[in-house]
Design a protein around this nucleic acid. Structure first.
Lengths: 350, 350
DNA sequence: TTGTAAGCGTTATCAG
DNA sequence: CTGATAACGCTTACAA
C-alpha cells in the first residue's frame, strides 16, 4: 500500500512542471509531441493513475451516471440495464445503480445519494408508491439532466422514454376480441404508474370501440408477481360466468396465471385466451406459448443513455419532443389463438 | 445552476469556523450538542450538500464498491446484483457496476476503470475468455480487497464465494443414474471457468462411482445460451444410440434443449431425462418442470458484500477460510422422473 | 469546546 | 510551447 504516484512525481522525474504533465496526459494540443510521449512513457512506467477525485473536485464533473430502478432482478429491467451499461461504458461513463424495491422511502434515499454523489445525469424508473417527484426537484433544479424511462413522470425539464402503452394494450385487447373473446379480464399493476394506468385505458378503449361493456369488476390490480398471478387466477376461477380472455400487464404474472388455470382444468386458449406483456424468455417456454407485447428493454436502456449524454453535453437544442416513444409490437403465439384451436377442435370433432 | 453551498458558507452564516461545521456534520463527539443542532438546521435550510470528492480526496476513501459481472441480463446475475445492492446500500456504499460481456478485453478495461475510480473494494465474476488475473494484480497489490464470486480464481489474498459445483453436479448426475439412465450427456460451458470444469468433474466422478463409462463424446461444450441449447439438442438427436439423460449447466440452455427435443418427438423424461442448473423461474414453467440445482444468487450477492465490508473495515483477522461455500441443493421435478413416469405409463398400459 | 492552517491531486488562469 | 500560482471543498494535526 505504497503512496500513489502524482503528476508532481512525474514532473520532478522529468524536470518539467506539473502543469505540463497534466496537459500532456489530457492530450492538450499545446504540448510538444515529443514531451507528450516522454511523459506518457514515464507515467506508464511509474505506474501513475489519475486521481479522479482531485480532477472531479476541480472540474465539477464526475463522469458518472446514476440509475434508479425499482428492482434489479426482473428480466425486463436487467435488459434495460445491460443496454445502459453498454452505451455508458463506451462513452467513458460509470454507472451507479440503486434499487428502490418499490418503496418511496428507498427511492427518496436513492435520490439523495445520487445527488450527493454528484452524478452528471440521472435515469429513473419510479417505484409503485411514488406519488410525486419532489425528491428529484433539487437535482432537476440544479440543471442536472434527469430522464425518466418506462415508469415516468411529467416534468417540463425532463425527457421521458416510453413505449405507447395505451396503444399496445389496445392492440392486445383488440386481438383478444378478434379471437372471439367478449368477457375479458385485465390484470395490471398500481395505477399510480403510467405504464399500468395507460394499459388499463388501452384495454378499456378497445372494449368500448368494439361495443363491449367495460366493467370494473373485470379489472384486477396487484403487484404482477408470480404469487399475484396465482391469486388472480384463483379469483378468476370463482367468476361466474368465467371470462374468456385475460390481458395481463407482464409475462411473469401471465405465466403463473396460466399455470394455475391449467391446474384447475381450464384450457388455454380454448376456455380462456391469455395475452401477456414484455416478451420475457418465459413467454416462449410456457405451454401454450404466450402471446405478448414485445417491449425492447435493451434498446430503451441504450436510447436513455444516448439522450442523456446529449443533454449532459450541454446540448441546449432541446430534444424536439419531451417524450420519446419506442416501437413495441404484438407477438401472437398460441395462448390467444382461439380461432385456430377451435378450428382444430372442430376438425377433430368431425 | 447557482453555486453550491459549502461548509465555509455555513461557517460565515453562523459565525463559526469551517472546522466546527465539518465536525458537526460528521457527528464528531467534541462538538456542543446545541451548536450541532444549529449547524445541521442551517445546513438543511441553506440546502447544503457535502462534496464527496473533496471528502474522498482528503480521506482517500470513496464509499464505493465496484462490481464486474459477465452479463447484466441473466436471471442468475440479476439476483446476485439485487443482493449486493441491498447490503451495500444499507451500509452506505454505492455500487459501480460494469459488464465484461464475456470478453477479456472488456474485463481488462473494466478493471482499469475500477482502479481509476478508486473503489474501496471489488467484486468480480470472470468472463469466459479470462486466462489469468494479471489485470487485477495492481488492485490487489494496493491492498484493495478483491472478492471473486461464482466464477472465481485463486489468489492468496482473495476470498472466493462459491457453491460446491462438483458436489452439485455429482448429485445431479447420480440422480439421473438412480432414475435408470446409463448413457448421460453433459452440456456445459467454457472449461476455463471453475464452475463449468467443476461440474464436468462432478458428472465424471458420478459416472465412475456408479460403474458407468465416461466418454468425451458425451460432453458438449458451448456458451449455454438459448441458441446453444437448440444446437446441442440437434447434435444429441443425431447420436446413436440416443442418450437417456442430459445434465445441463444452466436452465436457459436446458429448457431450449428440451423444447427442441420435444419438437423432434422425443419424450422428456421418458426417452431422455433432463437436469438443469440454477433454478431460474423458467425451470418452473417448462413442461415437464425442470429438475435443477437451486443456486442461491441473491444470498451469494449479500454474502459477497458482507465479507467485502469486513475486509474493507481493515478487519485483519482474516476470514478463516479463503473460500466460502454456500449451500445448494437438487430440486427434483418431473423432467428427470423416469421411474414415476414409467410407472404411470405401465398403469395406463394395463 | 472551538479555531488555524496545511494539504489531498488536479486543472484554469495568467504570464512568459 | 511551458511554468507559477491559485483555487476546488473538505479533514485533521496542532493550538488555544
Amino acid at each position: 500500500m505504497e503512496k500513489d504516484i502524482t503528476i508532481y512525481d512525474i514532473a520532478r522525474e522529468l524536470d518539467l512542471s506539473p502543469t505540463t504533465i497534466s496537459r500532456a496526459l489530457n492530450d492538450h494540443p499545446a504540448v510538444n509531441k515529443k514531451t507528450k510521449q516522454r511523459i506518457s512513457d514515464a507515467a506508464a512506467q511509474m505506474g501513475y493513475r489519475s486521481n479522479l477525485f482531485a480532477s472531479n473536485l476541480r472540474t465539477q464533473r464526475t463522469n458518472t451516471i446514476g440509475v434508479i430502478v425499482p428492482r434489479l432482478n426482473s428480466p425486463f429491467m436487467s435488459s434495460v440495464l445491460a443496454g445502459m451499461e453498454k452505451v455508458a461504458n463506451d462513452a467513458g461513463y460509470n454507472l451507479i445503480i440503486s434499487q428502490s424495491l418499490e418503496t418511496l422511502q428507498k427511492e427518496v434515499a436513492n435520490a439523495k445519494t445520487m445527488f450527493d454523489s454528484r452524478v452528471d445525469g440521472l435515469l429513473v424508473s419510479l417505484s409503485y408508491e411514488t406519488e410525486n417527484i419532489d425528491h428529484f426537484l433539487n437535482i432537476i433544479n440544479k440543471g442536472i439532466p434527469v430522464i425518466f424511462y418506462d415508469r415516468v413522470a411529467e416534468h417540463r425539464n425532463c425527457t421521458s422514454i416510453v413505449i405507447d402503452n395505451l396503444q399496445a394494450a389496445y392492440q392486445a385487447t383488440s386481438h383478444l376480441i378478434e379471437q372471439g373473446c367478449t368477457n375479458i379480464v385485465n390484470i395490471t399493476g398500481n395505477l399510480k404508474r403510467n405504464v399500468y394506468s395507460d394499459r388499463l385505458k388501452g384495454y378499456k378503449y378497445a372494449l368500448i370501440d368494439h361495443n363491449l361493456a367495460y366493467n370494473d369488476a373485470n379489472v384486477i390490480i396487484n403487484n404482477l408477481s408470480e404469487e399475484a398471478g396465482e391469486e388472480a387466477a384463483k379469483k378468476i376461477l370463482k367468476m361466474d360466468p368465467l371470462p374468456d380472455g385475460i390481458f395481463v400487464s407482464n409475462d411473469t404474472c401471465a405465466v403463473s396465471c396460466i399455470k394455475t388455470l391449467k391446474q384447475a382444468g381450464v384450457s388455454v386458449p380454448r376456455d380462456i385466451a391469455v395475452v401477456g406483456f414484455n416478451n420475457d424468455a418465459i413467454s416462449r417456454v410456457v405451454e401454450p406459448n404466450l402471446t405478448t407485447i414485445n417491449y425492447p428493454g435493451q434498446e430503451m436502456g441504450e436510447v436513455a443513455v444516448r439522450v442523456l449524454l446529449l443533454q449532459m453535453g450541454g446540448n441546449t437544442e432541446r430534444i424536439p419532443s419531451n417524450t420519446i416513444n419506442l416501437r413495441s409490437e404484438l407477438i401472437i403465439r398460441d395462448s390467444s389463438l382461439r380461432s385456430k384451436i377451435s378450428t382444430k377442435k372442430k376438425a377433430i370433432l368431425i
